[in-house]
Amino acid sequence: MIPLTFPFTEAQVRALKVGDEVSISGIVFTGRDAVHKYLHEGGALPPGVSLRDGIIYHCGPVMMKQPDGTYKCTAAGPTTSIREEPYQWQIIRDFGVRGVIGKGGMGDKTLAACKEHGCVYLHAIGGAAQVLAECVKQVRNVYFAEEFGSPEAIWELEIENFPAVVTIDAHGHSLHKEVLAASQAALAERL
């Protein structure tokens, strides 16, 4: 496991390659369908949210409001990233994102943006909501909860030793492309 600690520098990110298992610690912001569409359409990040040298996490967690007004994260696995493919490249470019955590992989536009701007795609284990919620040490804030609803809101999380695998690196390599090509060839032999 390679430790990856906030703030995530370009050098740190460029040193990673496809297949590396990483352990992420620091501040991350969740953002999924509604947030990506909003930013793509020219929306501004709310005050207090910065993605520069940061990580955006494709996640719609289960959050329980505590009597003191804080939130406890009780489930927090990744959601399918490919839905953000039309928008992600632009958000990487415009907001200085160094890492995208999600699942299922992303396409050529994101791959190109990762290479050009120095960003990686970090594949978390889909469905592993409890293991990953244990890595959330604190829910620091929430933005757009009213507008987008709880799963679609921007949650500011402090995570520790969050496990993920680099499946798109900053050198133009994608595990998803490799596995797709190999499985396509394997299937062709079996039809």
Binding site: V62, T74, A75, G77, A129, Q130, P151
Partner: peptide, 8 residues
């Protein structure tokens, strides 16, 4: 923990 296996 009696908590969701997956958040979805």
């Amino acid at each position: 923990k009696s908590q969701p296996i997956c958040q979805d």
